[in-house]
Structures are given as structure tokens and as C-alpha cells.
Design a protein around this nucleic acid. Structure first.
Length: 912
RNA sequence: GCCCAUGUGGCGGAAUUGGUAGACGCAGCAGACUCAAAAUCUGCCAUUCGCAAGGGUGUGAAGGUUCGAUUCCUUUCGUGGGCACCA
């Protein structure tokens, strides 16, 4: 009997489906365990081999935990709102709901072929009204809440209103509050709501009449069409995530994420401690009072080294302080900055730009007049949008001063050499009045105290993180349950949810950069908000909905979320390190504060899978011709490098016939060959349809079976690591499964397994394998686990071991990795119940005990020989044996050894 | 630019805490079986010197710590990912 994977896999997939083998109950005596995948955005391109990597890993883990006796929740769904569907709609006129539906069907079909153990009865889609009803509901809770800095948690906005009514605030008394117009009261409350509306800058493209993502802006022009893009202020919605900055930082100590992931989040939050300080500047326009420029600095100790101030070009005071003489060049510079994307402003710091305003500020400590500049390296969004520049202590300031010939003050003596800044805090201050003689790191505190006592500034903690922009001028997203009346945002009644996304005729932008919803008359008449929520809205809480997906009364019953608790293991790519993971952590904290769930961190453990990269192939077309030259000869011509579909290339050799048939353009292409072959160029890039380097899992499943495919993906390398895809190696894993099959069946003789009693050697191999597989599976070290399976099957084959008592335990170990073949062989051994719930083999150390070891013997750290020595032997005995060894004596050349290092059970090193 | 990751044979990778570098697999080479092919099996496979025994070199590069470094430290180069409206 042969290994007919097509039949076997179909048979058991149907069986598992018919018996609801993967359905999970919220009511079980087993301990709960929640394994979650980051759900996919169902793109039109379908799955490529990179997508299932994380899904296979989580599937293996879920099955493993189930064997270990847990009630495992392992759901899947679709993040189905998003920009690509909308752009496709603009191009083709098809409704996003239609294309999304179709794409999801394709995805599910592809996923099912791989044999995942998802409980599809819990599937969710973020674009379904039943789902986004609760996204809108949670948004309303955010809208109706504020962050109380005293209790450090979210509370109903009503508690704030009460506070204002009884105590007033810093800025107004209780009486004043009551006298405010309703409009003014709402404006004030808006400044405290967790979901709030305010003005913010967006990338605006006049020609396209739309707002663009940073991604869609390349070199200051739109990616589509190459039209100019500028910054424009528009009313936007935001989430006040900055209020949660400290709790988001503290929470990292309670979760099991990789250190690098935590580091990335910490850097994103970017907590820094310093102070704000005012610098006075003369008014250039009238004879009004002098302006005060507030700067933020983490280094107030360097106050006597300030040589100039730099404002962000967007700073409010730029216009008012600029002198007439400088106005022309300032305006010129502002125009230049407007055309620059944020990315460019950050990246191209080698190119130093800036412009002098003509104004001078006064250093409050020594009265020195210091010039005020504007420069794009100062960002309006961080701190106060103004900095004090200390060239001797900050490299960027130093380069700026050097470039514009601004004299540099040295406050650290010979710690500053005049060729580069010294950013350490270890130097002793000089020429710094009351700070003289202090170490810089100690002076920071002293300086802040002085600044506060003089009333010119105060201690301030700053975060790099900004409040999260939460509105998009798009169609395919959740509508805000908000109406605008008299400039006030009015929440929709919760009983009216969902506020369904209306159909539109065209998906183009509305007037004045508003979203497509602004084109719908009825929507405008109802005064509904015309922007929609961003992609991360639905994904910020979906893990809760899986627990209780059908509940029509609430987003997730508290009793149910108490049973499942946090996600035990969350698997997904690092590309979500800062976005999605921070937002979902914030939403969880808010829902916790408001009492809707019982935990304030959503994910207990996070595993990041690396990206499977595509290995692209290139052909070289001689400019202006239809002639293609092989890679090695391309230097002789002027060529264009073009992607070619990897499926036409064997290794690096191009199948020229397949290539010619690919596109009509290439039908009569000619080729310049080297040694009779056309060789392609190779580059590792992101796997993407547009680069023609995608490989479809369906083809591989068809050719080798799902079990082979699953194990091969895991065998490629460590799950966290990025690695290029190479289809060739899959043969090896397929051979392994066939070899396993032959332990049970012979192609000619049929059944070969038997009921004989296992030998010690066989038990030793089995238990070594149990130990290794169990540990590797728990650690997500799946590539080494697959290798251990191979070693085990190779050794069992060598021993001609066909014994049921050994093989059936091996099958259980293998089930999480290759469920179909395991289930089939399990039944062939006579079992009548599914292997999905078999008992996991128990490792017994007694089978592995050894009495001696072949010790590696090094001379001066270099391996020279091996000697078999009893494991019980101690140093004196071992020294004796080693020194009597012929090879060791040869290397000693008659000398006595200086030292003999003996590590019991490991090695011996003789130092000569 | 900033942040994170990473660099080991022709290729993917292994080496649980500093202790035999290259497990396992792919590709390649040689052989067995076969009329032939497929499948399967056996052997070789970092590099260099050598008939061999055996030796030299070798984990991106350069230094350092150590009896001993792929592993720890310093410097440096390359590659991949993220950087707030892609998801």
C-alpha cells in the first residue's frame, strides 16, 4: 500500500468536519488555553507561502496543548475593512463588500486545504455589522470616558462634569463652568475625552482631492499620478493613548514578549524626563509685550552652552518673530518644508537645512542674546516644537552650528575637542555660573530646581508617542456613531447601533478632502461624521469577540471572558510591533478600567514569526529592443532589469519558451545565451505579486500534501527568523513522511507493523525523541523538532523496528505537525477513536542513562582525540587516563602539562 | 537618520547555560538495483597541504577577555524589517 496523501487528507478533513472535531465549548472541566493568530487582511492576491507560516506554528501549538489536556480556543477571522479593497473599488467600480466576500472565500478555501484546527463556528469579520456594531459601541465608551490622572484610570466623563460643577479646574471656577455656554462646555470636555476630535495635519493631494497615507507619498508627490502633496490641517478624531503611556510601559513588565519587541514599544512610547523653559523674544510687529518661546529640553544642565534656538517650521510664533529683512528667505524655506514628507525630514539629516528668523531670544540666566532659527529637523509634534541648541553637547546641534557658522560656546573644557559634540553626561561643567564644578548628570536636578524657583519653567515628562489618529477620509471602514450639531459632537444612542455603512455610488473623495460619505445626501442631512475609523479599530478588540462571537447583547459576556482570560499565546509578524499591539493593549486597559473585562493586558505571551521572503529573478532587456541578455553578459549592454515570474525559472536558468508565452510583448523575444543557457539575476525581496516571486501553497499541497507542506514550512528555519523561500527542499520532508509510512506498510507486502516487544535500543531512541519533541514544541523550535523526527525515523528504519508500541507513541508526537498521516496510521494500528485526543507520551529518563562517554580531549583548546571514560570518573582518575594516552603524550613532547581542565560529562583540556 | 533584528559550507539551517563547529535536509558526485526510468538503498561532500597517517585555516571584518569564544566585550561593515492614513 502506498502513501496516498491526497485521499488520506481528504478523508480525514471530511471526518473532522463531520464530527465537529475542532468545535470548542465555553463550558469545560479542562483548563482553558487560548492560542491566537493575527487575523489576515483578505487581499485579492490570495495566500502565498509566507502567510501560513505563523498559522502552522500556532496550529501545532494548539494541537499540542489539546493533547496535553487543555480546552484550546483557536479561532480565525478576517480583518476585512481596509484601503486596498477601496482602491480596487475605485478602479473597477465593484463594491468592497463584494470583493471582500470573494477574497475571504478564497482565503478560507486555501486555509482549509492545509488542515488547520480552527473552530470556524467562531469566525468573525470586522466589516460585518454584527461585529462593527461593537466596535462602534466601544468607541462610544471611549468617547464618553476620560482618564482621571488621580486614579490613573478611565472613568465616565460624568465624573469630570461633577468635578467641574463642584470644584472647577485650574483654569476656571465651578461658577464659571456653570455660566459657560453648552458649546464651550462641550469644547472643554472634548479636551479630556479618550476619543476626541481636534485639528491635525494630513498629507493633502490637491490633484487627487484626497488625503494620503505616508506610504502613498514618495519624494513629496503622490505615488499614484505623481501630483504634489502638502500638509493640510483638518478636523480629525484621535485616541488619547498618551494618557495611558505610563501604564503601557508598566504593563510590559507583566507580559512575555521578546526583549526586542518590548524595546520597540518602549522606544515608540519614548518617555523622557526634562523640563520646559521660557525664552523671551522681542516683538517685531507691534509694541506689545515680548513673546515667550517655550522650549523642551532633557538637558537643562547645559543652559549656559545654548548658542541658538531652533523652532519647528510649523511653530505658531514663526510668523510673528521673523524680521522684515528675513521674511523673504523664511517664506522660501517654509515652502520648501511643506513639500517634504515626514520620512524625508527624518532621514536626510546629512543635508543640513535651516533659516535664520532675524530674531533673538534672551537666555534667562545670563542675558545673552541668542539667534532664533527654524529648521526641519525640529518636529512640531514633539515636545513644544522648539529646542535650545547646545552645539558642544549635541551632535545635531553641532553640525548645524558648523554649517551656518554659528559660534560655539564650550562649557565642558577639554571634554569638548571642537571637532564633534560630546553628548555624554559625565563631564564637569565650567563657565556655567551656579552649576560650575558639577558633573552634568548631577547638574540636571539642580538646574531644574533653579528654573522652577525662578518661575521660568517646570519639570516635564514627555513622550515621543502622539495621540493616535483615529479617522480616515475613506469609505471602507466603520462609520463613527457621531453626529455634528452646532459644532458639537453628539453620540448616537447605543440602542441605535450598528450605524450601518451606507452604499455609495462612487468611492472617490468628497468635497474639501472629506471622505466618500460626504457625497451621500441623506448622510449629510443627518449630520453624521463623514470620515470612518482606521484599519486598526476592528483589530483592537477582536480577540475578545472570538470568546463569545454570537452574543447579541454585549461585545463579550464578562463570565465568558473571565473563563478564557488573556490570550495565552499570540502569534504574528513584527510589522505590528508598535501599531496594532499598542492600540489593542490600550483598548483592553480602558475596557478593564470601565469594568467590562477582568484583565488589563490582552496577550500574555507573544511569538513573532519572521517573514518568508521571496527570491526574485530578473531578466535583462537591451534598451529599446526586445532582446534579452543573460546575466553574465549584461555588462556589455545597456539594459533594463525586469522581474520575471519565478515559476519560469529552474534555479537561475530561465525557461525561455515559458517566458515567451508569458506576455504578448515577449512572444518574439530573442535571447543572448551564455553556454547555451539564459541565466537570471537573483535578489531576495518581500514576497509580493508585483515582484512575480510568490509561490502558491495550493500547488504544493496538491503535489506533496498538506502534511509535507506544514512540516516543510516549519523545517525552513527558526520561526522568528526571516528566510527566503526555496521550493526545492520540500522533497526531503516528503521523503521523510514516505519513510515513516514504510515503517507501517510495505508497497508490496502491505501491513508490516507488529506487536513485538521493543528492545532497549528502540526505547532509548523513542524516549530521546519524546524528550526533544516535547521541549522543542513548547519552545516553538519547530525546525529542530522536524529534524528530530527525521533522526528518529532514520534510526527506526535502520533497526527495522515495526513495533506498534513504539510507533503509536511516535504518531502522537507527530500529530500536531502532520495530523492527516498520523490519524490515518493511528487507525491502521487498530484505534477507533481520533488521535486528536490521544494521551501524550510520557518521557522516562531511565531509558537514557549512560555509564560512559567518549570525552573530547583538547590540547591547548584544540581537539586532538576522543577517549571513552566512565561518567563516574573524577578528575585524578581522568588525568591518569588522559596522560597515559599515546596521542596526548605525542603533543606533550615529554613536558609536564601546566594544567588539566576537566568538566565532568563535557570535555578535557590539557594546557601545555 | 532613528529603532529592532540578523550575518556559520554551493543553499536552508544545527550547536539548551562559554566546552567535539557544520546535526537534519536540499543540491552535487560516485555506486547498487533496473532493459530503461521512477522509487529505494549505500558511500562521499567547509577549505587547503598530503598517496596516507596527519597537519594548517575557518562562524561578515578588526581587536579584546578566557585553559577554551559561533556564544561575552569594544569598534566596524553588509543585509532585512519598522518609523504613526498599508494592514
Amino acid at each position: 500500500m502506498e502513501y496516498n496523501f491526497i485521499e488520506i487528507e481528504k478523508k480525514w478533513q471530511n471526518n473532522w468536519k463531520d464530527t465537529n472535531a475542532y468545535q470548542v465549548s465555553n463550558d469545560s472541566s479542562k483548563p482553558p488555553f487560548y492560542v491566537l493568530d493575527m487575523f489576515p487582511y483578505p487581499s485579492g492576491a490570495g495566500l502565498h507561502v509566507g502567510h501560513p507560516l505563523g498559522y502552522i506554528a500556532s496550529d501545532i501549538y494548539s494541537r499540542f496543548k489539546r493533547l496535553k489536556g487543555f480546552n484550546v480556543l483557536h479561532p480565525m477571522g478576517f480583518d476585512s475593512f481596509g484601503l486596498p479593497a477601496e482602491q480596487y473599488a475605485i478602479e473597477t467600480g465593484q463594491h468592497p463588500a463584494t470583493t471582500t466576500q470573494k477574497n475571504i472565500a478564497t482565503f478560507k478555501d486555501q486555509l482549509d486545504k492545509i488542515g488547520f484546527c480552527y473552530d470556524w463556528s467562531r469566525e468573525i469579520r470586522t466589516s460585518e455589522p454584527d461585529y462593527y456594531r461593537w466596535t462602534q459601541w466601544i468607541f462610544l465608551q471611549l468617547f464618553k470616558s476620560w482618564f482621571n490622572p488621580q486614579s490613573k484610570k478611565a472613568e465616565s466623563i460624568q465624573t469630570l462634569v461633577q468635578q467641574f460643577e463642584t470644584l472647577g479646574s485650574e483654569n476656571f471656577s465651578a461658577e464659571e463652568w456653570k455660566s459657560f455656554s453648552k458649546n464651550k462646555q462641550q469644547d472643554i470636555l472634548m479636551q479630556h475625552r479618550l476619543a476626541f476630535s481636534a485639528f491635525g495635519e494630513v498629507n493633502w493631494c490637491e490633484a487627487l482631492g484626497t488625503v494620503l497615507a505616508n506610504d502613498e507619498v514618495v519624494n513629496g508627490v503622490s505615488e499614484r499620478g505623481g501630483h504634489p502633496v502638502i500638509k493640510k490641517k483638518m478636523r480629525q478624531w484621535y485616541l488619547r493613548i498618551t494618557d495611558y503611556a505610563d501604564r503601557l510601559l508598566e504593563g510590559l513588565n507583566t507580559v512575555d514578549f521578546s526583549d526586542s519587541m518590548k524595546e520597540m514599544q518602549r522606544n515608540w512610547i519614548g518617555k523622557s524626563e526634562g523640563c520646559e523653559m521660557d525664552f523671551e523674544v522681542a516683538n517685531q510687529i507691534g509694541n506689545n509685550d515680548a513673546f515667550k518661546i517655550k522650549v523642551y529640553t532633557t538637558r537643562p544642565d547645559t543652559i549656559f552652552g545654548v548658542d541658538f534656538l531652533v523652532l519647528a517650521p510649523e511653530h505658531d510664533l514663526v510668523n510673528q518673530i521673523t524680521t522684515e529683512a528675513q521674511r523673504g528667505s523664511i517664506n522660501e524655506y517654509l515652502t520648501y518644508v511643506k513639500s517634504r514628507s515626514d520620512r524625508e525630514r527624518m532621514a536626510e539629516v546629512k543635508q543640513i537645512t535651516g533659516c535664520f528668523t532675524g530674531a533673538f531670544a534672551t537666555n534667562p540666566f545670563n542675558g545673552k542674546q541668542i539667534p532664533i532659527w527654524i529648521a526641519e529637523y525640529v518636529l512640531a509634534g514633539y515636545g513644544t516644537g522648539a529646542i535650545m541648541a547646545v552645539p558642544c553637547g549635541d551632535q545635531r546641534d553641532f553640525l548645524f552650528a558648523q554649517h551656518f557658522n554659528i559660534p560655539i560656546t564650550n562649557i565642558i573644557g577639554n571634554h569638548f575637542d571642537g571637532t564633534q559634540a560630546n553628548p555624554t553626561k559625565d563631564a564637569t561643567l565650567q563657565a556655567s555660573d551656579f552649576l560650575n564644578g558639577l558633573l552634568m548628570k548631577d547638574a540636571i536636578k539642580v538646574a531644574i530646581e533653579k528654573i522652577e524657583s525662578l518661575g521660568i519653567g517646570k519639570r516635564k515628562v514627555n513622550f515621543k508617542m502622539r495621540d493616535a489618529g483615529f479617522s480616515r477620509q475613506r469609505y471602507w471602514g466603520e462609520p463613527f456613531p457621531i453626529r455634528w450639531e452646532d459644532g458639537m459632537a453628539i453620540a448616537t444612542e447605543e440602542s441605535q447601533l450598528p450605524l450601518e455603512l451606507p452604499h455609495v455610488e462612487k468611492y472617490g473623495p468628497g468635497p474639501e478632502g472629506e471622505g466618500p460619505l460626504a457625497n451621500i445626501e441623506s448622510w449629510k442631512n443627518e449630520k453624521f461624521e463623514t470620515s470612518t475609523m482606521p484599519g486598526y479599530a476592528g483589530s483592537s478588540w477582536y480577540f475578545l469577540r472570538y470568546m463569545d462571537p454570537k452574543n447579541a447583547n454585549t461585545f463579550c459576556d464578562k463570565k465568558v471572558s473571565d473563563y478564557w482570560g488573556q490570550v495565552n499565546v499570540y502569534i504574528g509578524g513584527t510589522e505590528h510591533a508598535v501599531g496594532h499591539l499598542l492600540y489593542s493593549r490600550m483598548w483592553t486597559k480602558v475596557l478593564f478600567d470601565l469594568g467590562y473585562i477582568g484583565f488589563d493586558e490582552p496577550f500574555k505571551r507573544l511569538v513573532n514569526q519572521g517573514m518568508i521572503q521571496g527570491s526574485s529573478r530578473f531578466v535583462y532587456r537591451i534598451k529599446g529592443t526586445n532582446e534579452f541578455v543573460s546575466f553574465g553578459l549584461k555588462e556589455n549592454y545597456e539594459t533594463d532589469e525586469l522581474h520575471v515570474d519565478v515559476n519560469f525559472v529552474d534555479g537561475i536558468e530561465l525557461d525561455t519558451t515559458a517566458f515567451s508565452n508569458w506576455k504578448p510583448d515577449y512572444a518574439n523575444a530573442s535571447f543572448i545565451l551564455e553556454e547555451g543557457k539564459y541565466l537570471c539575476g537573483v535578489e531576495v525581496e518581500k514576497m509580493s505579486k508585483s515582484k512575480f516571486n510568490t509561490v502558491n501553497p495550493d500547488d504544493l499541497v496538491l503535489k506533496y500534501g498538506a502534511d509535507t507542506f506544514r512540516m516543510y514550512e516549519m523545517f525552513l528555519g527558526p520561526i522568528e527568523q526571516s528566510k527566503p523561500w526555496d521550493t526545492k527542499g520540500i522533497e526531503g520532508v516528503h521523503r521523510f513522511l514516505r519513510k515513516l509510512w514504510r515503517l507501517f506498510n510495505d508497497d508490496l507486502k502491505g501491513k508490516v507493523w507488529n506487536d513485538e516487544t521493543p528492545t532497549d535500543a528502540e526505547l532509548k531512541i523513542l524516549h530521546r525523541t519524546i524528550k526533544k519533541i516535547e521541549a522543542d514544541t513548547e519552545n516553538f523550535s519547530y525546525n529542530t523538532a522536524v529534524s528530530a523526527f527525521m533522526v528518529c525515523v532514520n534510526e527506526m528504519s535502520d533497526l527495522k523496528c515495526h513495533k506498534k508500541s513504539i510507533l503509536e507513541q511516535l504518531l502522537v508526537l507527530l500529530m500536531p505537525y502532520a495530523p492527516h498521516i498520523s490519524e490515518e496510521l493511528w487507525h491502521q494500528l487498530g484505534h477507533t477513536t481520533s488521535i486528536l485526543d490521544a494521551a501524550y507520551p510520557v518521557f522516562e529518563a531511565s531509558y537514557l542513562v549512560e555509564s560512559s562517554k567518549s570525552y573530547p580531549i583538547s590540547i591547548n583548546g584544540k581537539l586532538r582525540t576522543n577517549i571513552e571514560i566512565s561518567l563516574a570518573a573524577e578528575q585524578p582518575e581522568v588525568e591518569q587516563i588522559v596522560l597515559n594516552n599515546e596521542i596526548v603524550q605525542k603533543w606533550l613532547e615529554g613536558n609536564a602539562p601546566k594544567k588539566i581542565i576537566f568538566v565532568k560529562g563535557k570535555m578535557v583540556n590539557v594546557v601545555v
